[in-house]
């Protein structure tokens, strides 16, 4: 494989507070190549959003990246000065957030907010940047872009605002696009449109995409590779086909079992018992063991390492493939 566009290695984020230190991200490693979509999946609190904010250097205070590296085309972002980082943000790396309703500033026009980022990173004069904004809005399928530029966010629907966010994020041709649950807040029909749009644009601009989501339907739709996160670490990583056809980690299996199927008899949906522990009360050993249907004493005491089971398929679990069959697991997780 070619040199990766983004290489995250052993990333660790911590928050110091009066109650002590908590680490929402604990040694996360994965790569993104040009033109590739990597889906990062996991429940709320698994550390996926914090990982993405680390890439942009926007971990909210008092949080900090204290170990590991994030290399964009070989350059370590964690070692960069603030001013260098600012030049990358919105330019080489841009981000689309979950809530299109609140992610745009309500008191400025769409044009103002789009042109701001274009003029900041590209040496264009005002008319040229307006032209660029119009081109981008056109690209994301917004009718009458000139009129939309003069409108305020509240005058647009949720789907339109997310299109604006995508247009804004792509307006400086970023090498890496981070999409943090870009379709969660949208209607299903609009979701499909936005996902198709992202797919098309990615192919056209050869952008690397990190798609953060807990929606496995979305993953199946657009991802090339999948990184499953739990408790601030990667528990399984494989191609999208491998994840859906041969999941090995009990957590991944649990996630898959909780998705309704279009074919076959209607059964009760699987659920993973309990919820993600907060970073301050992470268990010892395997972090998933309190919720794992197949946990053993070993899992309670020893923290498993991420290992390659088959080529390009990594898991963080002591159990081997033959240990527990998928169907059995599915039944056992019904609560």
């Amino acid at each position: 494989m070619s040199e990766p566009l983004l290489e995250i290695e052993d990333l660790r984020v911590r928050f110091r507070s009066d109650e002590g230190v908590v680490s929402p991200v604990n040694g996360v490693s994965f790569q993104v190549h040009e033109g590739e979509t990597v889906a990062v999946v996991g429940e709320s609190g698994s550390g996926k959003s914090m990982t993405s904010l680390s890439i942009l250097g926007l971990v909210p205070a008092p949080g900090e990246v204290y170990d590991g590296s994030i290399r964009l085309q070989g350059e370590d972002l964690t070692k960069m000065k603030r001013s260098q980082m600012r030049k990358l943000r919105g330019n080489e790396i841009s981000m689309i957030f979950q809530e299109p309703m609140t992610s745009l500033n309500p008191v400025f026009t769409i044009g103002n907010q789009m042109i701001e980022v274009i003029r900041l990173h590209q040496k264009l004069d005002k008319t040229e940047s307006i032209q660029q904004a119009v081109t981008m809005l056109d690209l994301v399928g917004i009718p009458e872009p000139e009129r939309v530029l003069k409108q305020f966010p509240h005058q647009l629907s949720g789907g339109m605002r997310q299109r604006v966010m995508i247009a804004m994020a792509l307006s400086c041709n970023p090498k890496l696009l981070i999409a943090d649950e870009p379709t969660t807040a949208l209607d299903v029909t609009i979701q499909a449109q936005i996902l198709n749009l992202m797919k098309e644009l990615k192919d056209e601009l050869n952008t690397g995409v990190i798609l953060i989501t807990h929606d496995l339907g979305v993953v199946a739709e657009v991802a090339d590779r999948v990184v499953v996160m739990y408790g601030g670490e990667v528990v399984e990583e494989a191609t999208v086909d491998e994840i859906f056809n041969h999941p090995v980690h009990p957590y991944t299996k649990g996630l898959l079992a909780s998705v309704p199927k279009m074919t076959g008899p209607v059964e009760e949906l699987g659920a993973i018992k309990g919820s993600v522990p907060t970073p301050s009360e992470m268990p010892t050993g395997c972090k998933f063991h309190p919720r794992c249907p197949i946990a053993t004493d070993l899992c309670k005491q020893v923290h498993p390492q991420l290992e390659e089971t088959t080529p390009q398929h990594f898991k963080r679990c002591f159990h081997t493939e033959g240990g527990v069959k998928h169907d059995e697991h599915e039944r056992s997780t019904i609560s």
């Binding site: 030049k87 943000r89 841009s94 957030f97 992610s103 980022v117």
Partner: peptide
């Protein structure tokens, strides 16, 4: 703390 402020920062603004 608003999300549009995070957006503004993610654009690389001063």
């Amino acid at each position: 703390g608003a999300e549009y402020i995070r957006t503004a920062r993610s654009k690389g603004l001063l």
